[in-house]
């Protein structure tokens, strides 16, 4: 059997896989971009000399 022959409804199958992996990829991109943004903000704040509360005390 030919795995690349998806029968008469190939469009629907391909479309649903594209949507699924597109949505998951969007989630992954969102998570990574968000992380980069937060890390950049943290770095900027630390460069301005604003220490975290936990830097002085043990617990924040």
């Amino acid at each position: 059997m030919d795995p690349f022959d998806l029968g008469p409804h190939a469009g629907f199958i391909v479309a649903s896989y594209i949507v699924t992996f597109g949505t998951m990829a969007a989630l992954i991109v969102w998570v990574l971009v968000d992380r980069a943004r937060q890390l950049a903000a943290l770095k900027e704040l630390e460069e301005q000399g604003i220490a975290r509360a936990s830097a002085r005390r043990d617990k924040s």
């Binding site: 998570v31 990574l32 968000d34 992380r35 937060q38 890390l39 903000a41 943290l42 704040l45 604003i50 975290r52 509360a53 924040s60």
Partner: peptide
Amino acid sequence: MAMRNEVLRRRVRAM
């Protein structure tokens, strides 16, 4: 990963 981001976001907010 999203939880980690959220912890960082709150840290940024607190700072």
